[in-house]
Design a protein around this nucleic acid. Sequence first.
DNA 1: AGTTTCATTAATTTTTCATTAATGGAATTA
DNA 2: TAATTCCATTAATGAAAAATTAATGAAACT
Lengths: 229, 229
Amino acid sequence: MYKILLVEDDESLGYLLSEYLKMKQLDVVWEKNGTKVMAIMEQNLFDLIVLDVMMPHTDGFALASQIKDKHPNIPFIFLTAKSLKIDVLKGFSLGAIDYLKKPIDEEELVARIMAHLSRLEKTSPVPPQDDIIPIGTYDFDSRNHMLLHKGDSIRLTARETELLKHLIQHKNNLCSHKDILLGIWGNNDYFNRKSLNVFITHLRKHLEKDPTIKIENVHGRGFILKVGH
Amino acid sequence: MYKILLVEDDESLGYLLSEYLKMKQLDVVWEKNGTKVMAIMEQNLFDLIVLDVMMPHTDGFALASQIKDKHPNIPFIFLTAKSLKIDVLKGFSLGAIDYLKKPIDEEELVARIMAHLSRLEKTSPVPPQDDIIPIGTYDFDSRNHMLLHKGDSIRLTARETELLKHLIQHKNNLCSHKDILLGIWGNNDYFNRKSLNVFITHLRKHLEKDPTIKIENVHGRGFILKVGH
DNA sequence: AGTTTCATTAATTTTTCATTAATGGAATTA
DNA sequence: TAATTCCATTAATGAAAAATTAATGAAACT
């Protein structure tokens, strides 16, 4: 299920579009106020952003370049009444993947969004061939949600597996709360952060048989999986 | 260098577009006859196809689905005078990644093509940036909040890390109280200045194993991190 | 329906760390 | 050299963050 951020101040168009997109099984967050976008993006991981260029108090182009700075890999589409050629070109030069002129045809917008999303699946970083990864005296089999240790095997739950995978992928490097939560939970709020702590405890318990493996906390930042070489 | 197939029967538009695309360093093959397309594709590997829907003797939609059958991974863009909504939707349902209505603006088409092509490139995973800075016999790993010294590692707190980073960035140069406090604490008052002193002490303690590293005070001004060559 | 599994939420204890306080030493100036 | 301001250090404080254990409830099985 894809998650879309729709930034549109116009009540009726915004409502129409978000309903259309929801009909297509998309998870839509509709934000009317451009100034809140950066904050929302700290809390959520989106697959695509649809951005109205002309909004009160907000320059859509400026907002787009802010987004691009902080989240360079999230594609965005401009929506605008500005059909001046120079603006279209500006939109693309900012990195837009599409640019639609008002009046917007909802069905066409949805078709375009679906086209872009289906391309994501093809080009997205190849599903990493999950072999069995050795870690200390353990072997981690992420495909089968298992942790093997000297003959006996420990079953991991889905969350435990994802979290351990994330930590292993960044072995010996700090994984920020934010990245972990956005990557695994999809959003970053107070409760999920509590949940993360619980799973860290679980993983520590699972990994305690090899004392050279440690999941260390970096106060206020996140966690590091350290493995003695 | 990307290779583009342009299928367009109209002489003047075809010429214009192919010249524009060549100007962008693209390798363009311009074919006027839709019936020859499949044969050409046997001989060449294209990154993108631009396809006019309305051509004599050829139904662009039918051609597109033939292409898609044989080469499912090559993206294509429709060019057409048919601006009927039903046709636009048909275009996308056939798997088009874009659909432009005539009259075509060459620059916009080029911008859209470039946008699509640049998305192709974005497949590289994570740029593992190493920002470990050597300082004397230490190595400072600011990302992980660590100071490494001959095998063992010292964990730094958030403030310690920021302060050391600031000092290192201005190695051998005076860092004024004011700049440090404004840069790290955000404001420069009596109490934060006291705090700064405490952290300077912490850093001195952490760095004491290399006597060539000194954090010197400049009375009434600030601090200098001095590192023996 | 009954059971199991598991993510989430809650409640509690423990730890971490920036700040503040207190004290004595150093540099500067009169 | 006396007075004053500035710095260095150690320790105390308190708030926020993290760890742990337990409780809850929904979904997937039997």
